[in-house]
Design a protein around this nucleic acid. Structure first.
Lengths: 245, 245
DNA sequence: GAGTGGTCTAGACCACCTT
DNA sequence: AGGTGGTCTAGACCACTCA
């Protein structure tokens, strides 16, 4: 009946079988972008596998970025990711809109806080310790896709909190404080969204994420912004174009 | 001190409790880089939770990149990731060695194969269909961390298979065929390692991965290499430094 | 209030790695 | 051969969302 290796097709575990079925339905458009999947219990009834096995299949698809979950609401087909090019200097609001999507930003917190040595090191020897810390959540087409944590030296931008931070922060720094970025250091790595970050985005702890850390410097080598962006992994794609000098 | 509901500490699920314990032990060096973790059944005995719960904790840590598994062998603490800078033109063998690690390359397959239209489009109108396809596995300190699938136009590099491909492929293309890369297009996105790729790397299907796609062009705009690299997510970190022109 | 996912238990058998 | 992770079952209760 099952798993006689020989010429059968059941060498594949049940959860991969279901994964493939759902993946095919997504590709074929039977399940379209943004659509909600049948519930775990429905799949359980349909295919007869235990719910745990069904969840295994769904987790796979999530890890691959094909679907995502809204906490305790259900599983949904992932929309097309937006493309982010760190070599272009346009901000989130701009490049998301350029791709025909609806960007939004909410400022969650602005605080003045003592930073650990690791952070101070980035800003260099001269910094006075309490620094600004801005936390923002950004969405694409109403879906939260990233939380960012921006550290800023108050000496360079006194009274920053009085301005509207729901648009382009670099815009404010440039137009109000005359801070012009001439160098960006960008670091990226796969991560998991956990705890606070997961909560902010309304996803389960452990959801696949991408951490993008950007450090912006001005012409005098001062750090203007230290920005840690936690992205839902399936919402973003990085693209860079490089030519020899 | 921080948002515990009421004042207890059991708001946290068991699996996160175990996750934190292990994470702390890694940070404290009790479990050192490369070390093997106690078995799932050992943890089950130790903390009394069901094995499924233990696995949930381990999966979290895996998603975060702190640990990885060798199929049916055990769980291990992830070594420090290597840094990859797509703007530098040095190859894998070079930059891994520069970071004091031991790089290795194995050529798994070289074949001449008909490509689907999507691939042909990348190479442009003029290509004659069967293209070279080179599959390689690369390791750091004896651990396989990436499989790559390179597509090359045989018109530009006839008889490529006769050369040693276990070193720098771009080196061969440059030195033997005079093909000089002047432009690189790099794309990155989170993915899961599945099926064939997972098998090559000896990891479970669904392991977190990073897909790096590089397209190299020469001065005349011809595609020299189309390279898809599937990385173990925890083995790599991308770093780019950008200055305004 | 009905339904969803989130967490958890306590087993079982298998394929494979390790020794 | 013994131990490991991989897969799977058949339940259970909870926290939360949604209508």
């Amino acid at each position: 009946m099952f798993q006689t290796d020989s010429e059968n097709d059941s060498a594949e575990p049940h959860y991969l079988r279901l994964r493939n079925q759902i993946a095919n339905e997504i590709e074929a458009g039977i399940l379209s972008s943004g659509a909600r999947l049948p519930s775990e219990r429905k799949y359980h009834e349909l295919i007869g596998s235990a719910r745990g096995t069904v969840r295994e299949a769904l987790s796979q698809l999530e890890a691959e970025g094909l679907i995502y979950r809204k906490d305790r609401s259900g599983w949904y087909v992932s929309p097309k990711p937006v493309t982010y090019d760190p070599t272009r200097w346009s901000g989130f609001m701009t490049y998301v809109a350029e791709q025909g999507r609806l960007p939004a930003t909410e400022t969650l917190q602005v605080k003045t806080e003592k930073q650990p040595p690791a952070i101070l090191d980035i800003f260099g020897k001269g910094v006075r310790n309490p620094l600004y810390r801005v936390e923002r959540r950004r969405s694409i087409d109403e879906r939260p896709v990233l939380v960012e944590d921006i550290t800023i030296n108050p000496a360079l931008a006194p009274g920053l909190a009085r301005h509207n931070l729901n648009g382009s922060l670099s815009g404010v720094l440039r137009d109000v404080y005359g801070l012009v970025v001439t160098r960006n250091h960008v670091e990226m790595r796969a991560c998991a969204l956990v705890r606070h970050t997961a909560e902010c985005l309304g996803v389960k702890s452990g959801t696949p994420g991408l951490l993008v850390i950007r450090t912006s410097y001005d012409a005098r080598g001062r750090v203007i912004e230290y920005d840690q962006e936690y992205w839902c992994a399936n919402a973003i794609r990085i693209e860079v174009d490089l030519t020899v000098a």
